[in-house]
Computed example of a mutant assay.
Amino acid sequence: MSEQRGDENERCSWCGVDREPLLVGAWEIRQQLGLSRQRIQQLADLPDFPAPYQHLEMGRVWRAAEVRTWIREWRSAG
């Protein structure tokens, strides 16, 4: 499933770049949800949160599409 959009001028709602990101870290998730770093880490530790794609020195990164799906489900449940 490709995350890139066909519209060349479309900007990412999370970070303002020209394309939606394929991977996101805690900072991008914070931007989307407006929550603290600590709260994002708590959410990321929930069993239903997507598994990280990779663990990097700077922290975990996730597939953006999986996180967007989780956010939609989390918001609709809350």
Rank of each mutant, 00 (worst) to 15 (best):
Y53Q: 06
W62H: 02
L22C: 15
I29G: 04
P52D: 01
M58I: 13
H55K: 15
E10D: 00
L23M: 06
R39I: 09
I71D: 01
S13H: 07
G78F: 03
R72P: 06
I71E: 02
I29M: 04
E3M: 07
Q4P: 10
G16D: 13
V24A: 02
M1Q: 04
Q32C: 13
M1V: 08
L43M: 11
L43V: 02
E57C: 11
R63I: 12
V17W: 03
N9R: 03
R75V: 12
L22R: 11
R75I: 10
R11Y: 01
Q54I: 06
W27R: 08
V67D: 06
C12Y: 00
G34I: 10
Q41V: 00
P52N: 01
H55Y: 06
P47Q: 07
R11D: 02
A77L: 08
Q42V: 13
S36C: 13
A51R: 14
R68D: 07
S2Y: 02
G78L: 07
H55M: 13
L35A: 07
M1H: 01
W14L: 14
V17D: 12
Q41F: 08
E57W: 07
R5S: 08
D18I: 10
V67Q: 01
L23I: 07
Q38P: 05
L56V: 14
V61C: 11
L46A: 12
L22E: 08
S36T: 15
I71V: 15
F49I: 02
G25E: 05
Q31T: 01
L33F: 05
A51L: 12
Q41K: 06
R5D: 04
E3F: 09
